[in-house]
Design a protein around this nucleic acid. Sequence first.
DNA 1: TTCACTTAGTTGTATGTGCAACTTTTTTCA
DNA 2: TGAAAAAAGTTGCACATACAACTAAGTGAA
Lengths: 153, 153
Amino acid sequence: MPWIGKTGKMVHLFMADKLKQHGLNMSMEQAIILKLLHEEDGLPQNDMAIVTNRHKATLTRVLDTMEKNHLVVRIPDKEDKRMKRVYLTKHGRKHLEDMRPVFIEAADEVQKGLTKTEIKTLISLLKKVQGNINLKKLQHKPFTICEKSSYPF
Amino acid sequence: MPWIGKTGKMVHLFMADKLKQHGLNMSMEQAIILKLLHEEDGLPQNDMAIVTNRHKATLTRVLDTMEKNHLVVRIPDKEDKRMKRVYLTKHGRKHLEDMRPVFIEAADEVQKGLTKTEIKTLISLLKKVQGNINLKKLQHKPFTICEKSSYPF
DNA sequence: TTCACTTAGTTGTATGTGCAACTTTTTTCA
DNA sequence: TGAAAAAAGTTGCACATACAACTAAGTGAA
């Protein structure tokens, strides 16, 4: 399966470059976080780590940067004092709006020449591959395929 | 195309975990370099950066680590004094042999439940996607689809 | 109820990553 | 031929990443 890793990396770089071209000073990693919070605001950090396939320590640092840049805020959960829930700020929401058309255009470019059927086939095959991968060990939790697109494209 | 990036990341993590489980103290990035040199020893750093879709500065640092660990050596080119060519060491070749069965087993696991036809279809669709992505700007060179698997799986 | 276990998040450390700016060497072309 | 442009590699910087070890807080069973 030599192609998945490389294609994934290329798509990642392509999208990151598009953000840059449009003057959006934001990494793909941060864009992914914004998209995730757009779908469900106030997620605990650990849930975000699992959905995005990142280590919780990595998430700590990405959120440090994003909080410094006023894109999100961390608010401790009232019930469970261990948890911190992450919320979009007004500024974060603005960035989200700015990046939306960029990703729509970029996704079109990436899919150029593929029929609707081919796209459906590709996604279904990738889902099958995901189903074969159990990252339980990595995340200390059973892996579940996330129907929400944790990637903004 | 929300699935490519995430699936790629999952495969990457899965493979990295397999290396660890088998006691191979090596990052996927380093494994990719070893595999590349196995196919063509003595590549200049810049070529390696392009094929692996990494920035040349990144390659500099990965190779620093690998040279420190005696997996590869850098030898200046006789003709073009700007270039450094990278060669596998005996130790590097040993690591390559050790990781081969790990990747074969892991690839089987990732592809479980997919027919030969499905695998062919998946690869052909991913190639189409790659064809849509022009990373010229990123690499200061026109992009070409690399038929060699720059990924060890 | 208490003490071991688990869970959420952070920090230290090493590596991986891209970009800009830099040096050295080669190429181009006027 | 000589100056400008290009190319290969390195370094400073900021961020991303995983892992181990840590703190604080909740859970569960004797």
